[in-house]
Each structure stands twice: as structure tokens, then as C-alpha cells.
Design a protein around this nucleic acid. Sequence first.
DNA 1: GTCTATATCAAGATAGAC
DNA 2: GTCTATCTTGATATAGAC
Lengths: 198, 198
Amino acid sequence: MGCAPLMASSVSSPLKPRAREIVAAARILLEQEGPEGLSMRRLAERLGVRAPSLYKHLADKGALEAAIISEALAEQADAFEAALSGAADPLAQIGAAYRAFALAHPHLYRLINERPIAREQLVPGVEDRAARALVQAVGGDPDRARAAWAFAHGMVNLELNSRFPPGADLAAAWRQGIDAFRLVDLRGRQHARREPPA
Amino acid sequence: MGCAPLMASSVSSPLKPRAREIVAAARILLEQEGPEGLSMRRLAERLGVRAPSLYKHLADKGALEAAIISEALAEQADAFEAALSGAADPLAQIGAAYRAFALAHPHLYRLINERPIAREQLVPGVEDRAARALVQAVGGDPDRARAAWAFAHGMVNLELNSRFPPGADLAAAWRQGIDAFRLVDLRGRQHARREPPA
DNA sequence: GTCTATATCAAGATAGAC
DNA sequence: GTCTATCTTGATATAGAC
């Protein structure tokens, strides 16, 4: 096993080693302190360096954020693909994976989703990989995949922002949504299976 | 007609007249420039006044934001209730109302939804009114109402943040989601009606 | 109800030396 | 690759006079 397969996310990173270190530290800082706490000064401090030095490796803060986002999207895609390959009830699996990722990295999730995305700065194709898994899980219809994505995104967003009332049964709400998107088949889809094969 | 009915949202506002003026100006500023552009300095500038003067009327920026949010939630509830009283296909109506409000006031929508809400500072009950209409539209089940809410919130959030790919057919995605939540009835709901009465 | 003056803090970014 | 020094801008908020 001396020949580990290269992951796409590693291969496609266009960054030099030092820049990668900086991005890695930035991600840790982000996940610990949130998007507001991610500043060039604080990042430099963590690296034992002065802030201006960072600009020798990354053009500006936007480039730093784009690098973090590219990395995170690739990880998200990995998680979705893993959830899909389990096979039984792919929609529920991918929903669980979506929620798990968001709850495990709430600040990272916010960085990705809370503002318009700078597509030009992302590693090409990384945004589509995650989407592809979702489309597949939902039966191939991109419109329904977007609706299901919106549901999942809305659930974690509302949860992360504490918008649900304190007593709300979120597991039940997730079930309702997953069931809804699994059962609809009036437009010729064939995914009305009620229960995953036991 | 000298005796116009008092609106709940006006009656329950705990603010003095001058504070109300300030909040109104703040909302305009917010809607034009976004949450990032809403600062005490700029707000004062618009009012032809110095920033410190504002603190004689509002405790701090948080109180200002809470006042804007209370007002907006009340309006949202009004819109939902109006959409409901139309009756035919309430779910689609309320979905359309939800999207319309968000697209008409994108920055206001972001202010409401983009961070944990400070419930203590809101006008009491204002958050529940909007929720009530949604629960009703969805057939009475709070869990399904939350799932439907998440779908709608996710759709507008992704749209506002340009997360959907350029060519995406959002109307179709909305239809898919609305249909999904209308049709599910395996748990004893009676809202599987396919078409609104023409 | 508004003012001036000020405290305090923090952000992103650049120039130019080493 | 990192440094010091600096620019520029902006934020929330308070004290105390008028």
C-alpha cells in the first residue's frame, strides 16, 4: 500500500505549500471563532508572524476565503458520495450527511453559504461535485434536487441560527421533509418507495 | 371614518415617536445598503444629526435592529395571513408570499434570518404570528410546517446568495417543493388535493 | 434633543528594508 | 519570507456641555 490514491481535492489545489499552511490555520481559526473572528491580523498571530507577511502568499482576504471554501466543498462532496454509496434510502442518508457536516462545522458552513459565492476564485468543478450526488439521490431531476437542497439548507440554517422554537422536534421535521421529497411522483419519477429494503 | 382600526403592529410598538422616526430611517438605510451598511454613523448622517444623539433614543445598535426586526416580522405575518385568506391552494399562496417578501426586501430578510435572533428584545408574540399562518397552511402539523418553512427559507436564501447555478429554473424548483409538501399524506393528513378548485 | 470631543478598538492593505 | 512602520477607514459607545 505504498501507493495511496491521490485525492482530487489535493491534486487540484493551486496553492504553494506555505500558502496551504496558512489556509489550514485560517480554517482552524474560522471554525473556532466564526467568520467575524477570521481576520488577517489574528491569523498572522496564530502563525507567529506579522499580518503583512500573509500577503506574500495570498493576494487578499478574498483569496484566503475562497481557498477555505474550495476545500470545504470538496469535503462535503466526499461526504455526500460516501452517503450515496451506502445505497439504501440514499435521500435520508444524504440528508443526514448534510446535517452532520453543517453541525460539525457551523462556522465553515456559514462561510460557504452566507454570502454570494465567488465562483471565479473557486477550484473549478468543486461546486458541482456535491450537487451531482444530490441530484442522483433525488432521482435525477435537477429541479427537485434543488428543492431538496433548499429544504436541507433551510433546516440547518434555521437550526444554526436558533430560529426554531426551543421545544421543536427537529428530527421529526427532517423526517417530514425527507418523506415529502421521496414520495412525490406525480411527474413520472419512480422513487415512491415507502421504506428502505430491510 | 374618523375611527380607523389600530393595527396590532402599531399598538404594540413600545417606542416613542422620535425613536420610531429613527427606526424608520434605519430600515430605509438597511434596505438600500444592506446589514453591513447599517451603522450608527451613517444612520445619523441620514437624519442630519450626529451619531451620539441616537443613543438618547435607543439603548444601542442591538435595540435598533430588534425594532426593525419586530416591525418586519409583523409585516411578514400580515402578508402570510392575507395569502391564507385567499383559500384556494394556501400552501402555494403562502410560498409565493414568502418569496415575494424576501425578494422585495432582501437585506431586511438577511437581517432577520442571518443570525441567532434576540427574542428578549422583540415585541412579544410577533414571531409566532407568522408561524401560525404557516402551520395552518400546511394542515396543522408543526413538524411539517417547520419542514415547509425550511424549504421556503432555503430557497430564498440560496437565491439571495446566488448559490443556484445561473441557468437554474427556480420556479420549477418552487413547484417541486410545494407539491412535495402538499401531497404527502401517509401520516393521516388530508391535503393531498392535486389541483386548486378552478 | 443635540452637540463636541474623545476613548477604544479593529479592520484591510501597502511600501520598502532586510 | 518576514519585518517595521504606516495609511486609511471604519465601527460602537460615553462624558459632559448647551
